[in-house]
Design a protein around this nucleic acid. Sequence first.
DNA 1: GTCTATAGGGGGATAGAC
DNA 2: GTCTATCCCCCTATAGAC
Lengths: 210, 210
Amino acid sequence: MAKKKEAKALDTTTEEKIKSAARVAFHKKGYAATRTRDIAEEADINLALLNYYFRSKEKLFETIMFETLFSFMQNMAMVLNDEKSTLEKKVELVAEKYIDLIIKEPNVPIFMLSEIRNNAEGLLEKLPIKQLVMNSSFFKQHQDAVAKGKITEPNPLHFLMNLLSLVVFPFIAQPLLQGIGGMNNKQFNELMQDRKKLIPVWIKATMKAK
Amino acid sequence: MAKKKEAKALDTTTEEKIKSAARVAFHKKGYAATRTRDIAEEADINLALLNYYFRSKEKLFETIMFETLFSFMQNMAMVLNDEKSTLEKKVELVAEKYIDLIIKEPNVPIFMLSEIRNNAEGLLEKLPIKQLVMNSSFFKQHQDAVAKGKITEPNPLHFLMNLLSLVVFPFIAQPLLQGIGGMNNKQFNELMQDRKKLIPVWIKATMKAK
DNA sequence: GTCTATAGGGGGATAGAC
DNA sequence: GTCTATCCCCCTATAGAC
């Protein structure tokens, strides 16, 4: 008793150091292309320690993957289930919050979606993502708006897809878009900042479109 | 002289068999997670032959990657540069054509974008993607429309991003969306079929939004 | 808990016969 | 061109000292 909870400041415990290094590596290169040696080196510990703490590369990956998915869902849930905000406000919040979030961690979306694709059943069945979305205030408000004739397309999945598409896709295609537009990272991020304001306007326009 | 161009029917030459198997494997699992042994087995040839034809896994990958990117760009160029179609018509064509294309090969978008991310400079500098888009009829028509006050947001990159986002992203997030919506593949594809008609309507709505 | 050293296996590539 | 057999490196995981 003395070692376990000492360093909670910035570099944290050994276990946390390993997880931080693993998170960066897995998010950047995915499971297959990441080597445990790189993680150990980046965490500034020995390779054996990694297995001491996490038993195997796969277990370590599962830990990181679960935390990444969980954090994503938690953020999502917070916005979609806020009973006090209108549907329009929720759209604004999703755009603003996720654009900020992804600018900080631009590799997370493609990482998540790639790895989910490799292991679809396994990963998703453990998290109650379906209920989270289908029972959300967001979905109820969408149904109301459809009933009142404020939204023409009745399928809420299209609405959610459109919102996520406009927010997330540009980051997934970032290198391609920078190639097309001749932009550096700073210019690209400025473009994404624009979208915080633009996406809610566009989404609103699609609601009444026919 | 007699072996090289005999089988052009369906299963094609040995080289083509290897490429077909490699294409499927790489598209599905990416470079790192694909084993040359799997490709050889799937192509129904010996592992040594793979190296005889392509010298290395990496060279084989580059071949597949280049062809995939080239095919994508060629399709893009054909639509964006058709001088005879209006901007609205081009939007319709992109939606229709790419949704059909991606339903047939649902792994290609995330494959392309993942691997581009791993090797951004190298892969994109070889293809004239910037000129292709920036000099396209599509971009000129967009500029015209902006000048005539028919489109409020003047940056053509936003326009292109929005179109590609709405078309491509749902496929990238397919397993997640199927999880949320409780859909099987057939139901998902039907939803994508809807979008062929819906996306042009939505895009048109965003043009005039403010 | 942390290290060094090494076992053990998998995967890419090649030698050489046919 | 195509095969079998094999090399050899690299990576994960573990044994065992401290």
